[in-house]
Design a protein around this nucleic acid. Sequence first.
DNA 1: TACGCTTGTTGAGCAACGCTCAACGAATGA
DNA 2: TCATTCGTTGAGCGTTGCTCAACAAGCGTA
Lengths: 214, 214
Amino acid sequence: MQVNPTSSQPGAYTPPGGKRLPAAERRRQLIGIGLQLLTERPLGDITVEEVSRRAGISRGLLFNYFPTRRDYHLAIIRAAMRRMSRIAEPPDDVPEEQRIKVVIERFVAFLERRRDPYVAIVRGVAGGDAEVAAIYAEARNDLVDIVLRALGRRPTPALELLVAGWLGFVEETILTWVNKPVMPRHELVRLLERALLAIVERRTAPRDLPGSPA
Amino acid sequence: MQVNPTSSQPGAYTPPGGKRLPAAERRRQLIGIGLQLLTERPLGDITVEEVSRRAGISRGLLFNYFPTRRDYHLAIIRAAMRRMSRIAEPPDDVPEEQRIKVVIERFVAFLERRRDPYVAIVRGVAGGDAEVAAIYAEARNDLVDIVLRALGRRPTPALELLVAGWLGFVEETILTWVNKPVMPRHELVRLLERALLAIVERRTAPRDLPGSPA
DNA sequence: TACGCTTGTTGAGCAACGCTCAACGAATGA
DNA sequence: TCATTCGTTGAGCGTTGCTCAACAAGCGTA
């Protein structure tokens, strides 16, 4: 027999409103809490204790949904990356010649708003960890595809390499710029666009065939 | 010099009869072990237990040299970054017009050889960590200076932003290329050099962007 | 109401880790 | 020989990731 759960410890329990959730929902809740906490601190400082406290559950229950803390972190990263790709993708009704600019603008906006969690992921965990690196690589490939589609260029290995590199350029530039905005925003976007065009200039890559529909 | 072989090369197991070392030397030894371990795994997986075991000392002693584990990690990062800047800097006798190429070649070589530890540092330390970010920023500024000197350009805020961004481009490109070498090495170097010149071009006018808005 | 099955949930407890601290002992000088 | 310095030890504490046996809420069936 256990003691009355409502009066055992002061402040340890959150309202019992969230009792016994369906598995999928509990999972989503936990990932959501992780994403939110990620805006405040690096993944490494997100403890099982705090997450479970915020969710109003026991520490043990978290391990029912994620075998290890690492798995929980991976799930958070996946969610964050998926969110990023979704944001970067421009709507269908954007005219051909403006798509790339829209993609850049969205990416800048995303990094401006979610700078800390993004850095916490890309720079914070991505290294030395094979699985995280894989997740990051997948997200980057998505972005490369989005950019190439926006450019109306057919993907080739060399071109993909260049665009991936350009993404690194964009990331570094924006993060540096956020800390020290040496130029207005629209000019930064223009700079990034110019750099992309200069980098993927056709003379540096094999000519591709015309006629790829958008 | 010393009774102890003093691991002039990391990787050498210090004999269990580890003797009373001078403070500075012990410090260097511990950082050396950290650098060596960093080639095998991310910093987060380097435990005090293992480092002290390899050094042949007690766990407690490590905290005599580094107040916390984090401080120890920071010392490792600083050492690694210093090493990188030192490597990238070209010798004085390189002719003006080849300096930038040499810098790139050295950087490529460095990332090829030390890919894992580099990634483990730049991408792999506790993210969102202000001090780590500061160390990284400092190293990046060093590299920007080296590149600008090699280019013979005077530093301006905008130019520094561009070169910093180009470093991101280089990093991303090389790391992608290492995983999937879609072109020979010299071509990669050429590509990186071209990208740099295109990016810092004194007038980066968009050549023929259709309907590019101002 | 009673019974049983499924499954979300608990909480005590273990192991590993970072970290502290009082004390030890090798080197050194007087 | 004694005292001082300082590199070093090792027991031990608090926290944290993680396990596991048991509990209880929902639900069908009778």
